[in-house]
């Protein structure tokens, strides 16, 4: 016997009205990051001693630029969701938690935008 209304059950969004969205995006981004991070680790290792011309030639390659943008998108989304949970679990003061959650949202967005800008500047520059 369920105490939830038929409408609530059909929507399946639970008490937070978000459903499994946070959990699902965390998983989707993690699956995307598996191949992307292995690709980046190999690329970064091969660029360990590279000069500017070699490294920017690498990033100007369309496949590399596109994969790099995909990595940035998945990474910072995953990072934002992960840091959000850590703050929710360990930061207990209401005001501090509120400020920290917003700072993480803005901070990760800003890092992602800066990274995308840098990639595009090199790719089109």
């Amino acid at each position: 016997m369920s105490l939830r209304s038929p409408l609530a059950r059909a929507r399946g969004l639970g008490a937070a009205h978000n459903g499994t969205h946070h959990w699902w995006i965390q998983r989707l981004t993690s699956i995307a990051l598996l191949p992307l991070l292995l690709w980046f680790a190999i690329s970064f290792a091969s660029l360990a001693a590279a000069d500017h011309a070699t490294a920017s030639a690498w990033l100007r390659g369309p496949i590399n630029a596109i994969l790099m943008l995909a990595l940035i998108a998945a990474l910072f989304q995953h990072m934002q969701l992960g840091l959000q949970v850590v703050i929710e679990d360990y930061v207990h003061g209401h005001a501090l938690k509120f400020v920290a959650l917003i700072a993480v949202k803005y901070g990760t967005a800003l890092l992602a935008i800066a990274a995308v800008f840098a990639v595009l500047k090199v790719a089109f520059g």
Binding site: A50, A55, M79, G82, L111, A114, A115, A118
Partner: peptide, 30 residues
């Protein structure tokens, strides 16, 4: 490690920006 990697992502962004700025700054970063 998740939180540590989040801090490390700042380094990744800095490395990309260094590449975008130019040869001198990138050489310093490397």
């Amino acid at each position: 490690t998740g939180v540590g990697l989040a801090v490390g992502s700042i380094l990744l962004v800095w490395w990309l920006i260094a590449l975008a700025i130019g040869p001198g700054y990138f050489a310093m970063a490397q």
